[in-house]
Design a protein around this nucleic acid. Structure first.
Length: 424
RNA sequence: GGAGGAAUGGCAGAGUGGUCGAAUGCGGCGGUCUUGAAAACCGUUGACCGUUCCGCGGUCCGGGGGUUCGAAUCCCUCUUCCUCCGCCA
């Protein structure tokens, strides 16, 4: 969330910038400022009474110590009213604080200065394109047919065991998943990321820290008995490692990578977009996460974009990098680049990565700070993350683009991890 | 799952009702000494909020609640960790 201090000092700017995200913040900002004022008034009054009480208690203690029982008891009688007032005030204060937080979390992150205006993906800006479009054979098949024909993925079996959106990978299909996960992790480690294997289920505080809760509750699977959530992305556990942490400046940047399965309810997604591997309830993804000094976070963002691009290039897939417009960006992001690969049989661009800078928006929720050298004050760090990469759509594109009459060609870079040049 | 024990500042570890945000040691930072370093010595060393902001006030001793004029200290509850038993990949 945005910091109160920033909103106080830049209220108009906040409202103005959020227009880029098609978010009318005028009413909300006003309410935040009012709630903030109320809270501060209440705190001043509460603190003052509490101070009086502390003084009185000290005096009473002193009186009893000196053996002045009568005076002590007399003084005691004076405390009951004060006590009542404090109880009342602190109740109001905590309600006021709660109200303020409720309002505050409704404000999205501000878009970075060069985020294009727009309402949907049509307004996104293509920043780079690369790779070579394949020459498809005649009668080229979409990946769901290829996956079935070559016995790589069994969608029906997934329906039986769990339900739609939970495919079963088999044989070379399963091995290809494993190979891709290894390949991605390996490349990330080479690029300086530390490998993490986090829990796949998180608590409420973690969900709040990265911004999934409270607003996107319906997108996660909820284990109600224990009030835990299946992770929708490794971003959640890996970023939350640093919740309530104060780093020192020379710890930065922190670079972590993790493979996890991701679980998404995808409520409200139906139709042809969900065919095959295009949209699943459970899928595999390797994630990269950085924690960086505010002055350098956009350098890191570019570095991450270049890194993800190199992965896709190694897989020899045609791709494009898209800068999201305000309307298509997530609630918590300041700047997001999406990566799309072309799945030639479907004739579709599929999103395989989303790389974002959240600036201090998540850090403020997480209370993730660092100590600047020679300075007392702790400052919020910047957090960034990106997929490197999400597997299913990569697999979809690999299958579709590399199909030949004899079988499916496997990119050379996977050799160390997948010992077949051909799937036939 | 059953029975006990514990949770204090970066770490170790005192403190069982009254200036305790907390002794002491280690670590960190600054200084004296030294050509430099070590050792020794001196000083300093948590976070958050409010404010009339070089000052003052408030909160925080695992989380939440309670008793009391007053709680790190007493009570309840939750969580986590340790020991023993059982079970187990």
């Amino acid at each position: 969330m945005l910091t109160l201090q920033f909103i106080r000092e830049n209220a108009e700017f906040v409202v103005d910038r959020l227009k880029i995200k098609n978010f009318d913040a005028s009413g909300l900002v006003e309410q935040v400022l009012a709630a903030d004022n109320e809270r501060r008034t209440l705190q001043t009054r509460t603190d003052q009474k509490q101070g009086e009480m502390n003084n009185l208690s000290r005096q009473i203690g002193q009186l009893f110590k000196e053996g002045k029982q009568d005076e002590g008891n007399q003084a005691k009688e004076k405390t009951s009213q004060l006590k009542e007032e404090i109880k009342h005030l602190s109740q109001q204060f905590s309600e006021s604080e709660k109200k303020l937080t409720t309002l505050l979390v409704q404000l999205p992150n501000l878009p970075y200065k060069d985020v294009p205006a727009g309402t949907s993906e049509k307004d996104n800006e293509i920043v780079r394109e690369g790779g070579k479009m394949p020459n498809l054979i005649d009668n080229a098949l979409p990946h769901w047919d290829l996956a079935t024909n070559y016995n790589l993925i069994d969608f029906e079996l997934g329906n039986k065991i769990t339900g739609a959106g939970f495919p079963v990978y088999k044989g070379k299909g399963a091995r290809l998943q494993r190979a891709l996960i290894n390949f991605f992790l390996e490349q990330n480690v080479v690029a300086g990321y530390t490998e993490i294997l986090p829990p796949f289920i998180v608590n409420e505080s973690s969900g709040f820290g990265t911004g999934q809760l409270p607003d996107k509750e319906g997108q996660m699977y909820h284990v109600t008995d224990d009030n835990l959530y299946l992770i929708p992305t490794a971003e959640v556990p890996v970023t939350n490692i640093y919740r309530d942490v104060i780093l020192s400046a020379n710890d930065l940047p922190v670079k972590n990578t993790a493979y996890t399965p991701c679980f998404r309810r995808e409520a409200g997604s139906y139709g042809k977009d969900v065919r095959g591997l295009n949209r699943l309830h459970q899928f595999d993804k390797v994630e990269i996460v950085q924690i960086q000094h505010p002055d350098k976070s956009y350098e890191s963002l570019n570095e991450m974009v270049d890194h993800v691009e190199s992965l896709i290039q190694m897989l020899e897939l045609p791709y494009r990098i898209v800068k999201l417009c305000g309307g298509d960006m997530s609630f918590t992001s300041a700047l997001t680049y999406d990566f799309e690969v072309y799945a030639a049989a479907q004739k579709k661009w599929l999103e395989v990565s989303s790389v974002s800078n959240f600036e201090s928006y998540q850090a403020n929720r997480l209370k993730l700070r660092f100590k600047e050298d020679n300075q007392k004050k702790n400052v919020l760090a910047h957090t960034l993350n990106g997929s490197s990469l999400a597997l299913p759509r990569i697999v979809a594109a690999l299958l579709e683009n590399n199909q030949t009459a004899e079988g499916i060609r496997v990119p050379n870079v996977l050799k160390p991890f997948f010992n077949f040049e051909f799937i036939d």
